[in-house]
Design a binder for these strands. Structure first.
Lengths: 207, 207
DNA sequence: GTTAACCGACCGACCGTCGGTCGGTGAGTA
DNA sequence: TACTCACCGACCGACGGTCGGTCGGTTAAC
């Protein structure tokens, strides 16, 4: 029998979520069993179910943690940024992409059966990012480079469009579909924000 | 032992897909077992797996069938429509909404655990609807009411934005979030298409 | 006789449960 | 201060039950 180790509940919970994230990340949610998480931490199954009432609830905790971390650093960035709206835009997008690549959770989420989780994660991220972008849109309007009626809604609209059209894994797009959209995105964003032609070319140049 | 009934494979496959659709619709994909489908049709498990190699593949067939039916009638409508681009737009949107309400699949799809199926269905519908809308956008450009660079991509972009921001069930939006977005949508669509102010007010007036 | 549609007993991977155990903590006592 | 003892809840892990999927065999059809 395993020696019993008691820890601070907060810490233990954290441990479990982190281990789960690692595993979900590497092998996918579906292919990761509760037993995997147990073994990885050297704890019993009952312990996990003491903190989470289902495997799915554990996944939600993982998502929440991931989203919060990603948003946290974007918010810090926004607070300390200086410059024109367009310049800030460019840097925020870049930061967002960095975050995406860091958690390859998104990549491994592309397994069949994970579409639901994938969608929920994307929507959660978008819902939290939108206010940050909305702020930049307002600044852009004041500067005169943008002209939009509903900053927050426009931020949501654009983020959703870009994410879902770009993201493979939700729908099995052909490579050429993704390509053709990527090329069209700058122009569409400009139209949406009433921004000068070419001002969002950095969206594809950065790739 | 059950008496063996042999049917035309095409017909049998159809039967299975329809039964599965009913059940997925009513109780959700996850809460529906293969046994449910079997019992509902009075066939053996092996028969189902003779036609579909996994439960997930069966889901794909259900989605494909649903989407094809909905698109079929929209395409017929487009072919026989006459009038200005804006007028056609109005009627296509209306038809799309009718289709949505007809299959209450979308309604019952709002159960937890159905987000994946819901998303896939929406994306599939959008992928097929986009070309229809793109055609109207091109006509609008010729008429001079719209001005867009990439008709197909713009159609995709707008459809995704509208569907995902409007649709509850994918993400637990508050009622007020949905409201505030609904009000902003006409202006955002107009911006994207470079259409005259107010020309898309019908999107909310129809509600 | 050959094909393939169809059957259903069986398998095994996993999630989640539940009765029970043991470490920590703090109030009571001396 | 030192000791103890009752209680809480963190922790354990064998086991139950569900379900997706398999496979050898059977039967209708041509």
């Amino acid at each position: 029998m395993m020696t019993r180790i008691v820890k601070d509940p907060i810490e233990r919970r954290q441990e479990i979520v982190e281990a789960a994230r690692d595993l979900f990340d590497r092998q996918g949610y579906r292919n990761t069993t509760i037993a995997d998480v147990m073994d990885h931490l050297g704890i019993a199954k009952g312990t996990i179910y003491h903190y989470f009432k289902s495997k799915e609830e554990l996944l939600e905790a993982v998502i929440e943690m991931t989203v919060d971390e990603s948003i946290e650093q974007m918010r810090r960035l926004v607070d300390e940024m200086e410059g024109s709206a367009l310049e800030k835009f460019r840097r925020l997008v870049e930061a967002g992409r960095m975050a995406d690549e860091h958690d390859d959770i998104l990549d491994h989420l592309h397994q069949p059966g994970n579409v639901g989780m994938h969608t929920q994660l994307l929507m959660a991220v978008i819902a939290k990012q939108a206010p940050l972008y909305a702020e930049l849109i307002r600044q852009g309007c004041e500067e005169g480079v943008f002209q939009v009626e509903h900053p927050l809604e426009t931020a949501e609209f654009v983020l959703i469009g870009v994410q879902f059209l770009t993201d493979m894994g939700i729908y099995p797009w052909a490579e050429e579909d993704l390509m053709r959209r990527a090329m069209a995105i700058p122009a569409m964003v400009e139209a949406q924000l009433n921004a000068p032609a070419g001002s969002f070319n950095f969206l594809i140049e950065q790739l």
